[in-house]
Write a protein that binds this DNA or RNA. Sequence first.
DNA 1: CAGCGGTTCATTTTT
DNA 2: TGAACCGCTG
Length: 760
Amino acid sequence: MSSPSLLDALNPQQREAASQVEGPVLVLAGAGSGKTRVLTYRVAHLVEELGVSPWNIMAVTFTNKAAGEMRQRIEQLVGPAAQQLWAGTFHSLGARFLRYESKELGIDGNFTVYDEDDRRSLMRRLFSERDLSNQDMDPKAVLNQISRSKTAMIDPQALMEQAGESPQKRRIAEMYVAYQAAMRANNAFDFDDLIVEPVRQLNRSPQVLERYQERFQQVLIDEYQDTNQPQYLFSKLIASKHRNICCVGDDDQSIYQFRGADIRNILDFESDYADARIVRLEQNYRSTARILAVANAVIEHNRDRKGKNLWTAGDEGALIQITECADDRSEARRAVGTVKNVCSREGLSAGEAVILYRTNAQSRPLEEELQRVGLPYVIVGGIRFYERKEIKDLVAYLRLVANPADDVSFLRVINVPKRGIGNTTIVRLRDFANQRGASMREALEMLDQVPELNARARANLASFRDLIRELSSCDRSAEGALTALAQLALERTGYREILEQEGTPEAETRELNLGQLLGRIAEYEELTEDSSLEGFLEEVALMTPADDAPDRSDALTLMTLHMAKGLEYPLVVICGLEENLFPTARSIEESHTNRSAIEEERRLLYVGITRARRFLALTHARWRFMYGSLQESVPSRFLSEIPDELTHKEAEPERFQRPRRQAPSPAVVKDPWTHIMPATQTKPSVSGVHYEFDEAAARPGGDEGHQDFLAVGSWVLHPNWGRGQIVRSEGADADTKLTIRFSRGQVKKVLVAYASLEPA
DNA sequence: CAGCGGTTCATTTTT
DNA sequence: TGAACCGCTG
């Protein structure tokens, strides 16, 4: 350390990680230990102080947004050269690789990226062509197996060989063969292909490999614990000439093993690179000592870990609040109440708080509560913008223009909006295409030769053909051409007209969404150097939910624990710490044969806990509304792993749910992009701040007079079915119809007038 | 061909 | 609870 350096701003371990630019480095970075800082400083140091060109650096980040931020940071240092930094997610880098090298590799560079939805519809087509029904084989299981095979770098032929004599396995392998053939025919790649294909091509083509190896003097990988085998191979291949590879990760935060992330990538780093340097970042700059102690106490129960102990020089901080709630609705009240209380007491804005949960479904009671008290909120993830039906429909038209071989998009839009082309017609066209080995689009152009079509079908198909021709012949080079194309599609397909005629609030929302899509296309065209339809479609396909989230707001954030990776908030509330929910029932089941299932859940909790800077609250409910009925819950085993002296515990008195009101009126138009409730809609809060015991709700059937015992939540005795709990009540007096969940698990509907129920 | 109603089944998590 | 799938009818 002679002259002052950028790196002086780092602590010694961070500095070592950032400055060690020769040879392989593994940075084991505990939560909140300044991992992102190290990565950014490392790149800055390389470029600014060691004179490495951004062109020679590859940086793999977890979101495209993170890549953009890194690029921006470098841009401040070295100017426009920063654009040459090869940065992005594995998937976006893989897609770019395939496009750049398309000529070399003999593929069509205008390929389409298929998401889960597209894969499913492709699989449905394959099933239908083989007259298979969902009963014969589970399409989801087939798709799963295909994905797992790809992640294990097993191609269709290899899977077939593995299947041996098992007819079951052979059938799945056959579908894999067909699937992959269809993908090629459609000129499409799925998410797995985007990594696996580049790896295959790099292995196959020494010249291409050498070009990449030569170029990338420095390779950086973030969130290394979540990489899978192909991703590992991709980076290893590219880095293997200069061997300057820096992987940053935390085995304790590995939460994507369920989808093939391979923890061996981190655990075996030293054996893969004998000369690897391992740097541990264990000083935490984020959380209070108590929060950290909770995190450490929990994660210590895992056996499969490298082991490290986070410490902080910071304050002890507040006790962790653990609240036992009567049911999921009061849990929502408590969680929101905690946010309001802590924020007002500590002078935080609601934007500095987050509520985390295990499953997306859990957002519902929280949303209802937030709408009730009028607190603005944002949901990150969930139903994403580009997954909305109307958006996917319009995007499918655009895809079809960019990639005429894309049958999945073709089939999606051939009768959307309705233009009188029914299933029989579609099947006839499809069979014709299959016979000719042609795409649907090509078949459509040979309409006259398609047999068995009646005049009406023929005419409808002809006008669809003309529509597609018109859209395809648009000049796409002019400025604003993409926006114009999308606009044209919206008009000429009649999509906008249909929505206008419908006039329902839902249709209105869809129109708004489509308007927003046009806005995004325009924005893309304006901000992107060489904008193209293909470029836009790729961006759409590879956008991560985090990329899509709003930057900053005063609104409370809601998201799943998975989405919270890499983020931090002064106040964190984690809901639903119950057995069978967190950890999930499935992980518990799996744990009987395999301990690691629970361990991944525990890591997920660890990730959640370590998001918190100052305040942490955990909640669980005794009863939870799930699968349409109330289920009793037991506190999560994880709660018992937290030392009492770190916590402050509260428990709500018994309380039953009233029947659910129907969903809050959709009258308030939510911003379709962010789900933010407009602040102007905020009503003064009625409750949710204080922990009031709701008397009326606690008195079962209080308002109904004599038949108190027939309220929702009550237990009753049925002459045939035995003991059961009322989960739903419809109608009044003698017409009252009850839904009862009996102890043996059956759910029955009974009429009070006939059922002769007794209190249990 | 389209729309309706009835039934079934499921919830991890997501690039 | 609800989405999604299936089969029937007009």
